[in-house]
C-alpha cells in the first residue's frame, strides 16, 4: 500500500516535470495549480542555462482530493484527503484551509496517530511540501484536513470547495468530490 502510493507519486511527478519544462502553466486537466503571485513569472523562452538567476518558486498541484460522506447526524465532522505535489524550486508548507459557503464551523489540519494502542487525533500547525516534486499525502488514518461542525450532510455526488493556504504558493483552490471512502484492498488499484 505504502509502496504503491510512492509509486503513484512518482508516476504523477514524472509527466508533471515534463510538462513544466514545456510550458509555464497548462491547467486544463481539472487539477488545481497555483502560480505564486509574489514572484515574477518565468520566461518560457528563457534558456535553461540561465538557471542561476531564476528566483525559486513553489508550484503546487493537488490531485486525488476527496471528502468523506457523512451519515446525516446534526453537527457532524468530516475529513478531506488529497495528494499535494510541489514541482517548483522552493520548499513550501501547507498552513491552513477554509471551506466555501460556511459548510463547516471550523477547518483544521489534523493528524491521526496511534500511541500505546490508542487512536488519538491532534491539530497540527502545518506540513512541509518539499520542492522538486516533493509530495504531501493526506490519507486515511493519517494527516487530513478536518471539517468541524458541518452545517449540512455530505452526500456522495456533492463537491466540497476548499481553499488551501500555503506559505509560498498562497491560496490554492481544490474541488473535493464527496465519497463514501474505501478500506484497504488486496489488489490496490489506486482507489482512494
Amino acid at each position: 500500500m505504502r509502496l504503491n502510493r510512492i509509486m503513484r507519486a512518482f508516476a504523477l511527478a514524472i509527466p508533471l516535470l515534463a510538462a513544466v519544462s514545456l510550458v509555464a502553466c497548462s491547467d486544463d486537466d481539472g487539477d488545481a495549480t497555483a502560480e505564486p503571485t509574489a514572484q515574477p513569472a518565468a520566461d518560457p523562452t528563457a534558456d535553461a542555462t540561465t538557471e542561476p538567476t531564476a528566483v525559486p518558486t513553489s508550484e503546487i498541484t493537488v490531485t486525488d482530493a476527496w471528502a468523506r460522506a457523512t451519515p446525516g447526524n446534526p453537527d457532524e465532522n468530516s475529513a478531506v484527503y488529497m495528494l499535494i505535489t510541489n514541482d517548483g524550486t522552493a520548499d513550501d508548507r501547507l498552513i491552513g484551509a477554509a471551506v466555501d459557503d460556511g459548510l463547516a464551523t471550523t477547518v483544521e489540519l489534523h493528524e491521526t496517530a496511534m500511541e500505546d494502542g490508542q487512536m488519538r487525533m491532534r491539530q497540527v500547525e502545518g506540513w512541509d511540501v518539499p520542492r522538486d516534486g516533493g509530495t504531501l499525502e493526506l490519507a486515511q488514518r493519517a494527516n487530513h484536513v478536518m471539517l468541524i461542525g458541518l452545517t449540512k450532510q455530505l452526500v456522495e455526488g456533492d463537491t466540497v470547495g476548499l481553499t488551501l493556504q500555503f506559505e509560498q504558493a498562497g491560496e490554492v483552490r481544490v474541488e473535493a468530490p464527496v465519497e463514501q471512502g474505501m478500506p484497504m484492498q488486496m489488489d490496490d488499484d489506486g482507489g482512494s
Binding site: 468523506r68 451519515p71 447526524n73 453537527d75 457532524e76 465532522n77 468530516s78 475529513a79 489534523h110 491521526t112 487512536m119 487525533m121 486515511q140 488514518r141 487530513h144 478536518m146 471539517l147 463514501q180 471512502g181 474505501m182 478500506p183 484497504m184
Partner: peptide, 17 residues
C-alpha cells in the same frame, strides 16, 4: 465516537467490507 472523522468511519468501512 461519531465525531471522529477519520479512523472510526474507516474502521466501520473495514468491518462492512
Amino acid at each position: 465516537y461519531t465525531h471522529c472523522p477519520d479512523v472510526c468511519p474507516l474502521t466501520m468501512l473495514e468491518l462492512a467490507a
